[in-house]
């Protein structure tokens, strides 16, 4: 049942050392403010699941929060490497990082299987490539009807899903618009969830009859953090800050400049620092 709270309380109550956590958002609505709060609270030994690790996991890996990463594409989109992720894999800095590597199709299927309460995801995939040789959790199953060999991987069942959405109403119903990613599946697959939103409104506004809404009884903690997806974006509120994604390449390349940035912008700040990036709501097509 949804509970509206502060971000600090939401993270403290829901994310513990050693948990399996999925921060989702496919380019859009990436929960940056929640990521910063997890780092500030000093969580350790997390297993992180995410299709595209992106800057949020680069930051958590570089700050030593992470034991294992379950993922399918670990880069800075359109820019290049995630340097903290690479440093951990190539030089075990600051800690060794265990990898469980998949393809996008596999990860998307595994979230869906988790949401559906199934033990595994079955799909036509991984044919001929080397990933099954390095990931023992990729197995195969024979279709009982056709005899076709299909790939199977365990369903994702995170302890906690963390997402950012445009808005929630006072009852805790959460509405998501635009590029949807796998957030709905991630929340439904998880035992607990933390949702940050641009705003909490009395009632959800006029919407399509098929709008994506997570009912309040499927959601855990909700915190209003305007601007909380920056430098990712919130459709209808503010655009993706592509120039920051390019700047991150330089910030993260070097261990010292990374730490200086994290101290100034994360450790010494709070969620309210994101408010400066928040836009005011406008029609999606503007």
């Amino acid at each position: 049942m949804a509970r509206i709270t502060s971000l600090a309380e939401a993270i403290a109550a829901n994310i513990h050392d050693g948990d399996t956590v999925a921060l989702e958002g496919f380019t859009h609505l990436i929960p940056h403010a929640a990521c910063h709060e997890i780092i500030r609270q000093g969580r350790k030994s997390l297993t992180l699941i995410r299709m595209t690790p992106d800057l949020v996991y680069d930051q958590m890996i570089g700050m030593g929060c992470v034991k294992k990463l379950v993922f399918s594409w670990g880069g800075n989109p359109g820019v290049g490497s995630l340097h903290r992720f690479r440093d951990a894999v190539e030089k075990q800095w600051p800690l060794p990082l265990e990898l469980e590597e998949h393809s996008h199709a596999a990860m998307a299927n595994a979230y869906e299987a988790g949401a559906a309460g199934q033990p595994c995801a079955i799909f036509r995939g991984y044919i001929g490539g080397d990933l099954p040789k390095v990931n023992p959790r990729i197995k195969h199953i024979t279709c009982p009807f056709t005899g076709e060999q299909l790939a199977a991987i365990p369903a994702h069942r995170p302890d906690v899903a963390v997402i950012h959405a445009q808005r929630a109403d006072k009852a805790g119903n959460v509405m998501i618009e635009g590029v949807l990613g796998v957030q709905k599946e991630a929340v439904l697959a998880s035992k607990r969830s933390v949702v940050t939103v641009e705003e909490i409104v009395d009632e959800l506004p006029a919407r399509s009859l098929n709008a994506v809404v997570l009912p309040h009884w499927t959601v855990g903690a909700i915190a209003a953090v305007p601007g909380g997806a920056f430098p990712s974006y919130a459709q209808g509120y503010y655009p993706r800050n592509n120039s920051f994604y390019k700047q991150w390449d330089d910030i993260a390349k070097d261990r010292d400049s990374f730490h200086a940035w994290m101290k100034a912008n994360v450790l010494d700040k709070g969620p309210e620092a994101f408010a400066q990036y928040a836009g005011t709501r406008h029609a999606a097509a503007e």
């Binding site: 496919f26 380019t27 859009h28 299709m51 989109p77 359109g78 820019v79 996008h104 199709a105 998307a108 299927n109 979230y111 869906e112 799909f123 036509r124 995939g125 635009g178 590029v179 949807l180 990613g181 796998v182 709905k184 599946e185 974006y233 459709q235 655009p239 993706r240 592509n242 994604y245 390019k246 999606a284 097509a285």
Partner: peptide, 29 residues
Amino acid sequence: LPLSIGDGELCETALTTVSVPEMFRYWLQ
């Protein structure tokens, strides 16, 4: 040109936008 695979303009100018599991299951696979 989008910098990322999911820039807002891709969504704003699309005929429709589906979830990522639907993308991979119904459309690609």
